[in-house]
């Protein structure tokens, strides 16, 4: 059997690894709901992570680092929405090129500016009342504000999408852009807002990676988490609440390797098998989320005056 300490560590890392996926998924839900597929999410997270580390190291302030990460995501959103929405380049290949650009640019700037330096990180905050509960309290005491921010943000995104006029517009832009335009709304403007805001949220996933680890930046440190978020969004059927659960599952999947390394009976299983678990799980998720259907207009650039599109 495994000791309580091992289990505590397992859940602590699981929750920490859940946060980046959660922010990335919430952002991507906004983007895809508006009819845009952001394969460049991996690059957005990388740029968010790098900017967070850079500003953290230069300023020494966690708050500034966090803001900078979010801001860098918004800027990525501005650039990407210009391509995806205004110019209407193919979204898949544009996103892929953006990823190559982001990987190259962040490693280039890391070499020039920060190297292996580390900046400030977020400390765990103890929750009044919960902190004295055995086990649960021990696990939660080591979680930082970003976990709570992510959990709090989930219903906010859900309400914004389903209970506001703006959310209705966004969903219409993703399902029937022609109808939205016919009702006198601007499809492009709706999509700009969703893509920019969504990229800001996704970039916070990169921020979380940095502020919950060393405070430094490692080339390509996002390691496919943006792509995993693309799968989580399908699993969640574009609903923020289910995305929270999905992110939690992927947090657990990412820490399996640690748990397995502590169990003697599993010593013979190659560790690569556990490391592959989140990626294999993503494949199964998209295969067996049969009923989940992308918003109808995802991936199709909208051209004003072509109302026949939907």
């Amino acid at each position: 059997m495994v000791s309580e300490l091992v289990l505590i560590t397992f859940f602590v890392t699981s929750l920490q690894l859940m946060v980046p996926i959660l922010f990335a998924s919430l952002g991507e839900i906004l983007v895809e709901r508006s009819g845009v597929l952001n394969v460049g999410i991996e690059g957005v997270m990388l740029i968010g992570a790098f900017t967070t580390a850079l500003v953290g190291i230069e300023s020494g302030s966690v708050g500034l680092a966090l803001l900078a990460g979010f801001g860098s995501g918004l800027l990525c959103g501005v650039a990407l929405s210009a391509l995806y929405v205004r110019i209407g380049t193919d979204q898949v290949v544009t996103g892929l090129m953006f990823n190559i650009l982001a990987i190259g640019l962040t490693s280039l700037l890391r070499d020039q500016l920060i190297g292996g330096q580390v900046g400030p990180i977020l400390r765990g905050i103890s929750v009044p009342g919960l902190s004295r509960v055995r086990f649960v309290g021990d696990v939660l005491a080591q979680q930082n504000a970003l976990l709570w921010a992510g959990i709090a943000l989930t219903p906010v995104v859900a309400v914004a999408l389903y209970r506001t006029w703006w959310g209705l517009q966004v969903r219409a832009a993703g399902e029937r852009p022609g109808a939205l335009a016919a009702s006198g709304y601007d499809v492009w403007r709706t999509r700009y807002a969703a893509v920019i805001l969504g990229c800001g949220l996704s970039a916070l996933g990169g921020t979380a990676l940095v502020l919950s680890s060393s405070g430094g930046f490692v080339p390509n440190m996002v390691a496919g988490r943006g792509f995993i978020a693309l799968g989580v969004v399908v699993l969640a059927r574009w609903r923020p609440g289910i995305a929270l659960l999905g992110a939690a599952v992927f947090g657990l999947a990412q820490s399996l390797q640690f748990l397995a390394s502590q169990i003697d009976a599993l010593a013979g299983v190659p560790r690569e098998l556990w490391l592959a678990a989140p990626y294999v799980a993503t494949i199964f998720v998209v295969v067996f989320s049969l009923q989940s259907r992308y918003p109808a207009a995802v991936g199709v650039p909208y051209k004003p005056g072509t109302a026949s599109q939907h």
């Binding site: 995993i228 799968g231 990626y279 494949i283 998209v286 295969v287 989320s289 992308y294």
Partner: peptide, 9 residues
């Protein structure tokens, strides 16, 4: 299932 996510994974 979309080949984008599966081929990437």
């Amino acid at each position: 299932a979309s080949e984008i996510v599966t081929s990437l994974m």
